[in-house]
């Protein structure tokens, strides 16, 4: 035990470890907030699709030799989020197909571009880290940490500000529309927030594992709690806890950050499921 503590204090002196923890907490907080909405609106597939789009955008940015690829990736992902949510509303089945097309297309083109234009021999390493976020969180620069922090604060603030509206639009969209809630505007805002979250979360777990970060906290909290507010708070705490645990374990054991976090999510999901089944739900 003391050995682990010593090791942790040692690591704590490295700025990149502190950055990783700070960014991990912020990103996991953000990604858990809209989880309930995504799961319930059957939007979780959009999260998946968007992360692939973000991967493609990242490939383009790296081919163009951008020093900071975040703004471009953010822009492309937000545009796709808005487009996908639009099609998803107009025609349900076609919406699904559109998501599949865009996401797989972006993945393929992204890989192709990286393959064609990356001079370094470590292509599979690059691709792997973009897909699984294996090392990226430990190599964050100060600017990236700042950008992450600012975006996270904006996301959390926006969520708090729009919390009741998100509930109204998610629970019963047609009632909301009939009684004067600007559902189109709020759906648009939700789409933008989702896109920002996806781009943020890519830094933490890579584009293939983002859905896990968004969905696991919400599903776990829903096993135990029965009101929107308690589920939201619980999934935020759940997500932050699992990310911290995952990052610490990955540092100590030398495992890839993203997949360790997701593994922690999975374990806690089963704990919550068992607890929920045992309690039959907490009415709070």
């Amino acid at each position: 035990m003391t050995e682990i503590l010593n090791k942790l204090t040692l690591y704590w002196q490295y700025p990149f470890v502190r950055y990783a923890l700070a960014v991990g907490v912020l990103i996991s907080l953000c990604s858990s907030l809209l989880g309930v909405t995504l799961v319930l609106k059957r939007f979780s597939f959009i999260g998946d699709g968007l992360s692939h789009v973000a991967f493609g955008a990242m490939a383009i940015a790296s081919v163009l030799h951008f020093t900071n690829d975040m703004p471009l990736v953010l822009l492309i992902t937000i545009l796709s989020a808005v487009a996908l949510l639009r099609t998803g509303q107009n025609a349900k089945i076609k919406g699904d197909a559109a998501v599949a097309m865009i996401s797989v297309g972006a993945l393929a083109v992204g890989y192709l571009l990286m393959n064609l234009f990356t001079p370094s021999g470590n292509l599979s390493g690059d691709v792997c880290s973009t897909l699984f976020g294996s090392t990226s969180i430990l190599t964050l620069t100060k600017t990236e940490v700042r950008l992450c922090a600012v975006l996270s604060v904006i996301v959390v603030a926006a969520f708090v500000f729009f919390y009741h509206k998100v509930f109204a639009v998610t629970f019963d969209e047609s009632f909301a529309a009939a009684t004067g809630v600007k559902t189109k505007v709020y759906n648009f805002i939700i789409a933008v927030i989702i896109a920002v979250i996806i781009v943020l979360a890519m830094n933490l777990v890579g584009s293939l594992l983002i859905s896990a970060l968004v969905i696991f906290p919400a599903l776990s909290a829903m096993r135990v709690f029965r009101s929107f507010r308690s589920v939201t708070i619980c999934s935020a705490v759940f997500s932050v806890f699992c990310s911290l645990l995952g990052i610490l374990i990955s540092i100590l054991a030398g495992t890839p950050v993203g997949s360790t976090i997701v593994a922690a999510d999975i374990v806690m999901f089963f704990v919550f499921s068992a607890f929920g089944a045992f309690m039959g739900g907490v009415h709070a």
């Binding site: 009741h164 509206k165 509930f167 909301a176 009684t179 004067g180 929107f228 507010r229």
Partner: peptide
């Protein structure tokens, strides 16, 4: 859907809220 009765009833006021959070 996790929603308490109180949350559902209150959401009836959302249209009157405008931008008020």
């Amino acid at each position: 859907f996790p929603a308490s009765v109180r949350e559902v009833v209150l959401s009836g006021f959302e249209g009157k809220c405008g931008w008020r959070p």
